[in-house]
Structures are given as structure tokens and as C-alpha cells.
Nucleic acid binder design. Structure first.
Lengths: 146, 146
DNA sequence: ATCAAATAGTTCGATAGTAGAACTATATCA
DNA sequence: TGATATAGTTCTACTATCGAACTATTTGAT
């Protein structure tokens, strides 16, 4: 790709990324129940998909320090939404898992989020949506590796 | 689009969005000079593109309350990166603009960010990149309207 | 022309997320 | 066995955010 075109694509990507990010975050915030934040829900949702994760894994995935994870996990633990399950073999390790209440909130929020996102994705043709998501996934993969 | 396909697209979109977001944010954080945050730079960059904006406009664009903007603007003002220019006609209004120092930091960071993003976008063919960005912009536009 | 309502921006108090350093406890390995 | 690495927590400090209360100004309805 030539320089001028690449620069154009980058500028447009940044603008769209910023806009979608800010808008989506605000819309998610509005969906949230009283006592839960967007980041807290992200944590619950990750644990729903990856049961018995650990603080270290969350820190890697969320790209933050372990002390940030301790803070967020403690808040969710205090709300009785996640459990801390010590590993029997390696006593340094503490697995994290949803409680029944955490699972229910997750399920409920998943439905709400699906409805919200469907509104924006539905207008696209199947072909366009698939093409888009495939490129998006390649981009994500590229960022995973470095 | 049929339901099962839509649901699949939504799940994949969410996963890629989360990953790209978190990774990009972390990479931006690493690029930042000592005394500047990612959100502060976003504000500077918006002002570079939209000179003489106002707090209310920033609050709309960033999807946050006006008091959040006051906080961030005050920090940038204290660092001498932006100016506050009262409107002559309507004395409630205060226009915001970069200082010379703010402009320089912006230019410098724009270059760094372009290099970073180029690394991830370069691998795509021109055709794929354009198709992707066009759909992304449509998505952004859809979110602007509601 | 006046006064109520709207608008622009700030202040204040509270909370969440984050970094980074210091710390504890445990495991690994040379 | 002892040094080093790893998992997680605690603590302090800071930024971003909300929402309510506030000031100053403008707009608009009567």
C-alpha cells in the first residue's frame, strides 16, 4: 500500500475507532444495573467464557497490572458475584469463578448487550458483516502477537 | 440476516473489539510522555482538528458529563497545553484551543501513533483495508444517529 | 420590559480504575 | 539447600468519571 493511502486509512481508522469506542462505552454504561460498572461486567463476562481463570491471566488479557485486577476482583467478590478457589496443588494460585448470582447477572446483561449491538449490526448485509469481522479479527490477531 | 448468523457476528465483534481496545490502549499508554495520559492526548488531538471547540462540545463528543471535561481541561490548562478564550458575544462560552506547546506535543505524538498503527494496518491489501474502513465508518455513523 | 427557564461552565464529594513499589507466601531449580 | 521466580495482596497516589449544587449569562414568553 502506498504511503498516502496508508496515512488516509490510519486517520479514518482512528476517527472511527474513537467514535465507536466512546459511544459504545456510553451505551453500555446506560445498560448497567445500579451497582455494576462496565469494567466489572467485562470481568464477569470473561470469567463466564473462561472459567477458573486467575488474576495473572486477567491482568494479561486486560492489559493492566495485577494490582488493578486485585481491586476489581475484590469488589466483585464483596458483591458475591465471583468466588476465589485456591488451587490444591500450587498454593500461590487462586482460581476465579462466577457465583450463581454472578452467572445470572451475566446472562441477563448478555441478552441486553446482544439486543443493543444487533440494532447496529443488523443493517449490514451478511456478506459485508462477515468481510468486516474477518478483517477485524485479523487486526486483533496482529495485535496479540506483538 | 438470520438470527444465528447475527448472533455469531455479534459475539465475534465483541471479542475483537475488546481485544483491540485493550491492546491499543496499552500500547498508546506506553507511547505517552511522562506527564500526559491517553485521555488528555485525545483531548489535545480533538482540539487540533476542531479548533475553538467548547467544553459542551467535548462533553458531547467524548460522551461524558461537562464536569469531566472541566477536570481534564483544567489539567491541560495547568500544563500550559491549551488556552481558554472567552467568547466576546456570549459571555457564558469559553473556546478552547491548543497553545504552541500543545500543538508541538500533538504533532510529535501523531507521528508516533501513525508509526504504531501502520505496523498493524500495513499487512492488509489496499482493497481489504478500504472495505474494512468503509464498513467501520458506516457502523460509527449508525451509532452517531441514535 | 421583565422575569422564568434554559444554557455554559465550575465546584465539590464520592467512587472506580490504574500504576508501581513493597510485601507475603509458595514453588522451582541449580 | 538456598537463590530466584512466581502469584497474589496491600498501600499510596493519581486520573476519570458522575451527579448535584452552584454562578453567570442569555433566551424567550407574556
Amino acid at each position: 500500500m502506498e504511503q498516502a493511502m496508508l496515512k488516509d486509512i490510519i486517520d479514518r481508522y482512528e476517527a472511527a475507532h474513537f467514535l465507536v469506542n466512546r459511544r459504545l462505552n456510553a451505551m453500555f454504561r446506560e445498560l448497567m444495573p445500579e451497582d455494576l460498572t462496565v469494567d466489572q461486567l467485562s470481568t464477569l463476562r470473561y470469567l463466564q467464557l473462561h472459567n477458573r481463570s486467575t488474576s495473572s491471566e486477567l491482568a494479561d488479557i486486560f492489559c493492566v497490572g495485577k494490582s488493578s485486577i486485585t481491586a476489581i476482583v475484590t469488589r466483585l467478590f464483596d458483591k458475591n458475584l465471583i468466588q476465589r478457589l485456591p488451587d490444591e496443588k500450587d498454593r500461590r494460585v487462586i482460581y476465579l469463578a462466577l457465583t450463581e448470582e454472578g452467572r445470572q447477572i451475566c446472562d441477563h446483561m448478555n441478552d441486553k448487550i446482544d439486543v443493543l449491538l444487533a440494532k447496529y449490526i443488523e443493517p449490514f448485509s451478511e456478506q459485508e458483516a462477515i468481510g468486516f469481522i474477518e478483517t477485524f479479527e485479523k487486526l486483533a490477531k496482529g495485535m496479540m502477537q506483538s
